[in-house]
């Protein structure tokens, strides 16, 4: 059997197939990256809403809490399916790739919001009190006092989440997005052995993810104090 597989390798790695795999790898990477960047933006908005004390923000606070608590407990596959069929029902004619981008953003917003909130909360209240004493406006104390101290606590876990999410985007193959797993499926359907194709896909995922994970660990060491940034409570 092994000799068959080895004989198959040169047939698998033709220019055409390699380009297919590399393009797919790029899609995989961008799915996670776009999801995390958008997630970071909306996650900030959500956690600012959750951390505010003004009564006007109460409904917003409740909404943010419900969003974060619910979206973190729904499997990515189910979210994908809801958006997939939801787009059909509402009559939007959008591609599977767009649906995957929307679902990754929606899911990662919930997860990143929790990381951002933990980071912002880790800044000592006395810092904000000092800012208030010095007559900083709310915006100034957030931008010049809170954020610079919270940033090193937020960035490493968000990066870690981005690397984790690269692996979750494999599920986007279920709605037909041409990412790495789907490319593996296509090659398998073309007649290449499953063990060879999926083995190659596994290795490609490893090549993408491992350096990023190492870089994340470096970031965590470099910025330090990563211990405080993790959410204390379980999900």
């Amino acid at each position: 059997m092994l000799s068959f597989l080895i004989a198959e390798i040169p047939r698998l790695f033709t220019i055409y197939n390699v380009i297919l795999l590399l393009k797919a790898a790029l899609t995989t990477l961008s799915l996670s990256a776009v999801g995390c960047v958008i997630g970071l933006f909306f996650g900030f908005l959500l956690s600012i809403a959750r951390l505010s004390h003004r009564p006007i923000f109460w409904p917003l606070k409740a909404l943010a809490l419900i969003y974060v608590e619910i979206l973190r407990r729904v499997p990515f596959l189910i979210t994908l399916m809801i958006f997939f069929f939801g787009a059909q029902v509402l009559g939007f004619n959008i591609s599977a790739l767009a649906i995957a981008f929307i679902s990754t953003s929606v899911i990662s917003t919930a997860f990143v919001a929790e990381i951002v909130r933990a980071g912002l909360r880790a800044v000592k209240p006395s810092q904000m009190e000092a800012a208030a004493v010095m007559n900083f406006s709310a915006w100034h104390s957030f931008w010049h006092v809170r954020l610079p101290q919270a940033w090193p606590l937020i960035l490493p876990p968000v990066f870690g989440y981005f690397v984790l999410f690269i692996k979750d985007t494999a599920l986007a193959s279920q709605v037909g997005v041409l990412e790495l797993t789907q490319a593996g499926k296509i090659l398998n359907t073309k007649g290449f052995s499953a063990s060879l194709v999926y083995g190659a896909v596994l290795i490609l995922y490893f090549i993408i993810s491992y350096p990023l994970a190492r870089f994340g660990a470096y970031l965590e060491r470099r910025l330090g104090a990563s211990r405080h940034s993790r959410p204390r409570r379980a999900i």
């Binding site: 059997m1 692996k167 494999a170 060879l196 999926y198 995922y205 490893f206 993810s209 994970a213």
Partner: peptide, 24 residues
């Protein structure tokens, strides 16, 4: 640990379910 945490669970199961039958 490095290998299993840096590859998707879905593809790992693909290899187990579709790949291992190549070896019987």
């Amino acid at each position: 640990v490095a290998f299993f945490t840096n590859t998707p669970q879905l593809v790992q199961i693909y290899v187990i379910y579709f790949g291992l039958p190549d070896f019987g």
